[in-house]
Simulated scan of single mutants.
Amino acid sequence: MTDPFEELNYSLQQFATERDWDQFHSPKNLAMALTVEAAELQECFQWKTETESAELNEKELSAVRDEIADVQLYLIRLAGKLNIDIEKACRDKMVKNAEKYPAHKVKGSSRKYTHYQKGDDK
């Protein structure tokens, strides 16, 4: 195996099998667990200023690292359950985003794509 997502998916399958957890890993449950982990990631930044959030100490950075890993692992497990190729899905989504957010229209703006109309060159 050379695909890191495949390798991690295989490892996660083994991990769940060894613990008899596959019975709990329905797509619904994995999606719910993912939101919990994402909230724990947000908690690492709660009440911090923009500057503080970019200048984490070692303990804070370690906690963020762990939560990012938890989020990614749940994403990999969910994708594996649904037979979704994460790398392909990401590349396809990047193409869609490039279409929704043409650089010449959105450069320097944080507005949502629905603000921009086709043919609107502003």
Rank of each mutant, 00 (worst) to 15 (best):
M1F: 07
T2R: 12
P4A: 02
F5I: 12
E6N: 06
E7V: 14
Y10V: 10
Y10P: 01
L12Y: 10
Q13C: 11
Q14L: 15
Q14F: 14
F15T: 09
F15E: 15
F15K: 15
T17Q: 15
T17G: 08
E18F: 07
E18R: 15
E18Y: 04
R19D: 06
D22C: 03
D22P: 01
F24R: 10
F24I: 05
S26A: 11
K28W: 07
N29H: 15
L30E: 08
A31N: 06
A31V: 01
A31Q: 12
A33H: 07
A33G: 15
V36W: 03
A38P: 01
A39Y: 00
L41W: 10
C44S: 12
C44Y: 02
C44G: 09
C44F: 05
F45W: 05
F45M: 10
W47I: 00
W47F: 07
E50Y: 09
E52G: 03
S53P: 03
E55F: 10
L56I: 06
N57P: 03
K59N: 08
E60C: 08
S62V: 04
R65A: 10
R65K: 15
R65Y: 12
R65V: 05
A69D: 12
D70R: 03
D70E: 08
D70M: 07
Q72D: 08
Q72V: 15
Q72I: 15
I76R: 10
L78E: 02
A79Q: 11
A79H: 09
G80C: 09
L82V: 03
L82C: 11
N83M: 04
N83V: 04
N83I: 02
N83Q: 13
I86V: 13
E87P: 00
E87K: 13
C90A: 11
C90P: 00
D92K: 05
D92Q: 12
D92A: 08
K93R: 13
M94F: 07
M94G: 01
M94C: 01
V95L: 10
K96P: 00
K96D: 10
A98S: 09
A98V: 01
E99F: 09
Y101V: 01
Y101F: 13
Y101D: 04
A103T: 11
A103N: 06
V106M: 07
K107Q: 13
T114M: 02
H115T: 07
Y116Q: 04
Q117M: 04
Q117W: 09
Q117K: 13
G119R: 01
D120M: 14
D120F: 03
D120H: 05
